[in-house]
């Protein structure tokens, strides 16, 4: 796993909010086309770690390289970085004043500089891809939570990212709506999308992940392929966490 030309390499990343350390020497790496799932109790730093990758949160120490480029360098063009890294939020964060098409087209239009028509066509294609071809002109408030999140995914995909970040994409959804979002994500896995996912959906993680990283208290407790981590965890803490999650499922 530790080959020199890993697509995304996170090395000894640490972060503090004031005096409180939220990430401590976190390291992992993934190759192009990999799916890595970050799991751990709430407050373990998974979301913060995810946000450090596209610098919505700033890591204070360590290194993150994406495709050979140092992400944390002060010379990095943050807007450029975010253009290449798509993100899906727990709370969807759809632009409330725009239709589904408008939401997806905004980035291609304003960031990539596509024509109005070009951006709309691309948006329509992406919405089709997530199964919302019939909701192009709906406003966020007119969509169900699952539909909103699928628009959120289409919005990220429309930028043709080389890496997709998912920050607990199903946590804000009613149970019956989770399936449609996971299905879209599975489709992306099949297409070979490189994905870094924070989630509590263990069966999903188990089915699609190439590697699971278990974080607790801002530290990587254990990582490995899902079979190993779920069947034969090396650390006692990992086992306890998985048991607790399983009993809640």
């Amino acid at each position: 796993m530790s080959d020199a030309d890993a697509f995304l390499r996170v090395t000894d990343v640490s972060k503090w909010y004031g005096d409180e350390q939220v990430l401590e020497d976190v390291s992992f790496e993934m190759d192009r086309g990999d799916v890595t799932v970050l799991i751990g109790p709430s407050g373990s730093g998974k979301s913060t770690m995810l946000r450090c990758v596209n610098r919505l949160a700033e890591a204070q120490e360590g290194s993150i390289t994406l495709d050979g480029e140092e992400v944390l360098s002060p010379d990095t063009d943050v807007d450029e970085l975010r253009r290449e890294v798509g993100m899906v939020f727990q709370s969807f964060n759809l632009f409330a004043h725009l239709t589904a098409t408008g939401n997806v087209a905004l980035g291609p239009r304003r960031v990539l500089g596509l024509s109005e028509d070009g951006a709309r066509d691309r948006a329509a294609a992406q919405l089709e891809r997530v199964g919302l071809g019939d909701q192009l002109d709906s406003y966020p408030a007119e969509l169900s939570g699952g539909q909103q999140q699928r628009v959120g995914i289409a919005r990220a995909l429309a930028m043709e990212p080389k890496l997709m970040l998912f920050d607990e994409p199903t946590s804000a959804l009613d149970p019956e709506l989770i399936g449609e979002v996971l299905e879209v994500m599975r489709g992306l896995v099949d297409e070979g999308m490189t994905m870094l996912v924070v989630t509590h959906e263990m069966s999903f993680a188990r089915a699609v992940a190439d590697e699971i990283v278990f974080l607790d208290d801002g530290r990587v407790v254990e990582r490995g392929p899902p079979e190993q981590l779920f069947e034969r965890p090396e650390k006692e803490r990992t086992g306890r966490f998985l048991e607790r999650i399983a009993s809640h499922d």
């Binding site: 919505l56 807007d79 253009r83 993100m87 939020f89 964060n93 980035g107 304003r110 960031v111 990220a156």
Partner: peptide
């Protein structure tokens, strides 16, 4: 909502663009 700006930044809009467009 603050998430609106975050989402704007996440697709690569600058802060000023996020304020203006979102």
């Amino acid at each position: 909502d603050e998430g609106q700006i975050t989402a704007g930044r996440a697709i690569g809009l600058s802060k000023v663009e996020s304020i203006y467009h979102v």
